[in-house]
Amino acid sequence: MAGSNPNAKPMNLTLRVWRQPNHQASGQIVEYKVNEISPDMSFLEMLDVLNEDLLHKGQDPVAFDHDCREGICGSCALFINGRSHGPEKGTTTCQLHMRKFSDGETITIEPWRANAFPVNKDLSVDRSAFDRIIQAGGYVSVNTGGTPDGNEIPIPKDISDRAFEAATCIGCGACVAACKNASAMLFVSAKVSQLALLPQGQVEAQTRVENMVARMDIEGFGACSNIGSCAAECPVGISLENIAILNREFLTAKVVSNNMA
């Protein structure tokens, strides 16, 4: 079957892939060749081709995380040629297509590198630290039932839209991988500002920001140095404005808790 672009020529590529059997073992880059790659394939479909080939040869396929392949679940997480999710801006690995590469190219594929994200195997890392940060306060404390009518509290559209923008973070961890300190500030700030912007979230705003930031430190993420490589590599465009909001919230919380002390 032909692809959407009948003139596109299949490509032959060299892949340099990080292989590591498990968290305890050490890893290394291993070189593979893949041939006849259609430019219409997604990056992960190209890896599928490699894996089918390895399996046929009786070799262990490359482990990597993925699920939706639509850029929304945040599972896929590859560091491609030194960049989180590869060369295309605003794109997750699964939405990156091979037409962005050229015939004969060598592509280096590594997992996210961060102390807080230990490698499970090959290209799959453990991002449960993100879950624990959310558990520290990334919610509104309401139980099921007994909530007021959805239209009881009007929320100005621009506020609601900004909260939505922040809420679109897919929890992929690209920001951490892009940061030389492996800071999780962009991820944390997205949740903090979503909830700080909305009246429903404001009730617990102070404890939330303190607890989430404290958890981030415990998990071993680095400090934020405000360079902004996180936002530049974020596939869904979470903006640095959120970090500003987090800092403001954090200062307010500190002032209040100092006063109370």
């Binding site: 909530t147 909305l198 979230g201």
Partner: peptide, 22 residues
């Protein structure tokens, strides 16, 4: 109808009109 109320209370940012309603 309860689902919408529940989600709004959790901070789910549904689309809104200029008047601030859903």
């Amino acid at each position: 109808v309860n689902i919408i109320d529940q989600c709004v209370a959790q901070g789910v940012p549904f689309a809104r009109e200029y008047g601030g309603l859903l």
